[in-house]
Amino acid sequence: MSTTAMGSFHSIPALPAGARTRLRLTRRGRAVLTALLALPLVIGAVVFALNGGGAVATSEQTHVSFQHVTVESGDSLWAVAERIAPSADPRDVIADLVQLNGLDGSGVVSPGQQLAIPSKYAH
């Protein structure tokens, strides 16, 4: 062992050629390694628990029937909305028609097209 102005140095003996070193984990090291390996499982379980298992598909079919209106020549969504709900704001009726029928919202409908009427406007 030699001492210098910067401090003392310890020399580590060199391993003989062909010698194998073994990795030794302390109890603390094993705990950290176990925690790191278990972390993805814990995160997955928490995500699954918060999600509630997601939607469950069933074989039960729910039959919902709607009243329909047929679009006449020259009609727009505005005209249809005024015809089916004269006392309601046509903008609200149009928004409901667009959502229920999966329309693009441009107000363009074709003559002969069948539109489902939301139940709150059906007579």
Rank of each mutant, 00 (worst) to 15 (best):
A49E: 11
A49Q: 14
L50V: 14
L50Y: 11
N51K: 04
G52L: 09
G52T: 12
G52A: 11
G53H: 10
G53K: 12
G53R: 13
G53C: 12
G54P: 14
G54S: 12
G54E: 10
A55Y: 06
A55R: 10
T58F: 02
S59Y: 09
S59Q: 13
E60C: 00
E60S: 05
T62F: 05
T62G: 00
H63W: 06
V64W: 01
V64I: 14
V64G: 01
V64M: 03
S65F: 05
F66L: 00
Q67F: 01
H68K: 12
V69P: 02
V69E: 08
V69T: 14
V69H: 04
V69S: 02
T70K: 07
T70N: 05
T70V: 15
V71L: 02
V71F: 02
V71A: 09
E72P: 01
E72F: 03
G74I: 01
G74R: 13
G74F: 02
D75F: 02
D75T: 05
S76P: 08
W78D: 07
A79G: 08
A79V: 11
V80T: 04
V80K: 06
A81D: 02
A81N: 04
E82D: 03
E82G: 06
R83L: 00
I84G: 00
I84Q: 00
I84L: 00
I84T: 00
A85G: 02
A85E: 05
A85H: 06
P86D: 07
S87L: 07
A88R: 15
A88P: 05
A88C: 04
A88Q: 15
D89E: 14
P90Y: 06
P90N: 03
R91N: 10
R91L: 08
V93K: 07
I94F: 01
I94A: 06
A95Y: 01
A95R: 13
A95W: 00
A95Q: 10
D96G: 07
D96C: 06
D96M: 07
L97M: 09
L97R: 09
L97Q: 08
Q99L: 14
N101K: 11
N101D: 08
L103P: 08
L103H: 10
L103M: 10
G105S: 08
G105K: 07
